[in-house]
């Protein structure tokens, strides 16, 4: 399993908000154990998808220099199960950005039904060069947003 929990970034505005999507499919590895004969997407992986989207928005907002790692979370509510076949739409809104990190809120929905809400999340900056190749990260970001084709291939 590659730990990429976001398929697309549908819309974003630097320093303000981002909307992304994740399609949940029956062939995901984690559904085998979560739970036997009752496949639902684990809540924490929804949190990971939210933090990945927020991290990409940090990446775009800070001129492709830093990404974000979670340093705190608060007031998360899981309202309903997310099942295979659902398309999870994630919305992240930045509330404040400072020199250490960002504070944001987020929710995840399937169509119009809200599944998960988080009213305060906190990301700390981490230097992109320390964790990833900068060009690879940029290319992947543009692939997610659909702005440029991946690896120069036009599909």
């Amino acid at each position: 399993m590659r730990f990429l929990l976001l398929d697309r970034i549908l819309e974003y505005q630097k320093g303000r908000f981002a909307i992304g999507s994740k399609d949940v499919t029956m062939s995901e590895d984690f559904l085998a154990d979560h739970f036997p004969r009752f496949p639902v997407m684990p809540g924490v992986l929804q949190l990971e998808a939210i933090s990945q989207l927020a991290s990409w928005l940090v990446f775009a907002s800070k001129d492709f220099k830093v990404k974000g790692t979670l340093s705190g979370l608060g007031n998360i509510k899981f309202k309903d199960f997310v099942k295979p076949g659902d398309q999870l739409i994630i919305e992240v809104t930045f509330e404040s950005m400072d020199s250490e990190g960002v504070t944001f809120k987020a929710h995840a929905r399937v169509k119009d039904k809200i599944k998960t809400t988080m009213s305060s999340g906190r990301l700390s900056y981490i230097d992109v060069e320390q964790i990833e190749d900068l060009e690879d990260a940029k290319e992947y970001f543009y692939y997610l947003t659909g702005e440029k084709p991946w690896g120069g291939y036009s599909l």
């Binding site: 790692t69 340093s71 705190g72 979370l73 608060g74 007031n75 998360i76 509510k77």
Partner: peptide
């Protein structure tokens, strides 16, 4: 169902 006050 709910998680609150998490710190890493």
């Amino acid at each position: 169902l709910r998680i609150d006050n998490v710190r890493f």
